[in-house]
Design a protein around this nucleic acid. Structure first.
Lengths: 241, 241
DNA sequence: ATATTCCATATTGCATGGAATATCTGCCCG
DNA sequence: CGGGCAGATATTCCATGCAATATGGAATAT
């Protein structure tokens, strides 16, 4: 269902639009587009043309166009001059490199987090980890996926370096469209949980090196699994040492 | 001098415009704007309004506007809704965090480069380093600055991971407007050269850990020096261990 | 039958005008 | 004399029209 941005376009703006409109239409469209790509509404390779999107969101072509070009800067979509915009596709090899980059960035974040997280931060992380165990035993992939994202987000914030956290987050977003079925198998969930345990232990012990190593291994492992989903035939070579 | 993009605007396009125009006006403006910011034509805090820029470049407001918003995504400029765009300003504290992030990313690159650079790559890096010694003895800061950038660029490419290299390069660009007088003092040049030597040695020995450590220290050191330039009063605390 | 050229169509890209929002100035009031 | 309000100005932001470029297909030549 298309579902316009807000308001009916004919009469006055809806309360929603006017109430929380301290942002611009372009930003709204960009956020909405990013979400739809991240949640799999538009799959990699899907052509995103200005006109149909402007109809879909009930706005003119201009904000759609600007949003698309801005997303192209982030790498989530690919724009070729005079040839339109498509949801970015990543080859299996490139995906391996992306996971390597994510592993490096998040390992650095984990290192800083081990040093800089407050007691409250550590407590929150520990609580979340315990809570996620429910999703492990019930085998709820969706739920574990959300908690996995939150786990990583907490560590990124704990690093107390928004620039490093932003690049990690940005890279992580770019691979999201390729991790749809990440926790389909229960075995992947339990393995991820075990790795989270190692990361958490290292952070609680404030052991920088161990935290970095555990995080690097965790992300590399997840990367290998995702690569295997793309080309189930051959075995993925390990990345990130 | 304003200096339009290309062509005279009145009659037909210039040869230059038509010849190497496989790109769009927006992209040209974005590149041009980024260059002018990076080379100090527009200092941090400078207001960038659509109209004067469109006059300056001899194009309409649309491509200028799109270029500005795209640069805002990279962080080189800051755009606030309905309040215009300014060249991004970075507080001394934030600058320290940025250098920390750069240190982490480039250290990771150096680690990969130590493993993946070909013999030819290593030779090129060694040659460049030797060549840069001329700039050291002559005290040519401009020249050494260019070679320093090339040195780091070679290592980023040597990592054979364009995603990691891109984030490092992107972060590096963002701090460039704050490093104008980086090699004003001869003492900074000699120190940088010595640190390059350590990095080079580690890479030639294919010693990952040493390469990462040397690079991290090198960038942190440069960051501390840049921070001192901003607030010459107090002593900068070391970042990135 | 295949390849090539030319033309019709569709889409992107740029320019311009008008609506919405922020900023500035002068004035009024406390 | 300082603070706040109202109007005027300037700028951003969105919509629309037209030009430029790419795409698909039919007709022609080999």
């Amino acid at each position: 269902m298309p579902n316009k941005l807000a308001g009916d376009g004919a009469g006055g703006d809806s309360v929603l639009m006017t109430a929380l409109k301290r942002s611009t239409t372009t930003d709204e469209v960009r956020q909405r587009l990013a979400d739809e790509i991240l949640f799999g509404q538009f799959l990699p390779g899907h052509r995103l043309d200005e006109q149909s999107l402007s109809l879909r969101y009930g706005v003119s072509r201009t904000p759609v166009r600007e949003a698309l070009k801005q997303l192209a800067v982030t790498g989530l979509v690919e724009a070729r001059p005079h040839k339109g915009v498509v949801v970015a596709e990543i080859s299996p090899e490139a995906l391996g490199l992306m996971f390597e980059a994510i592993a490096d960035c998040e390992a650095a974040c984990a290192r800083h987090a081990a040093r800089r997280m407050t007691a409250t931060d550590r407590q929150m992380l520990a609580d979340l980890h315990v809570l996620s165990h429910q999703a492990v035993v019930s085998g709820d992939g969706e739920r574990y996926d959300a908690m996995n994202r939150e786990f990583h987000a907490l560590i990124l914030r704990g690093a107390r370096n928004s620039y490093l956290a932003d690049v990690a987050q940005s890279l992580r977003q770019r691979v999201m469209p390729f991790r749809r079925a990440q926790f389909r198998r229960a075995e992947r969930i339990t393995r991820s949980f075990a790795e989270h345990q190692r990361i958490l232990d290292a952070i609680l012990a404030q052991d920088e090196d161990a935290a970095a190593r555990a995080m690097r291994g965790h992300v590399a492992e997840a990367g290998g699994a995702s690569a295997d989903l793309l080309m189930p035939g051959r075995r993925s070579e390990p990345v990130g040492e």
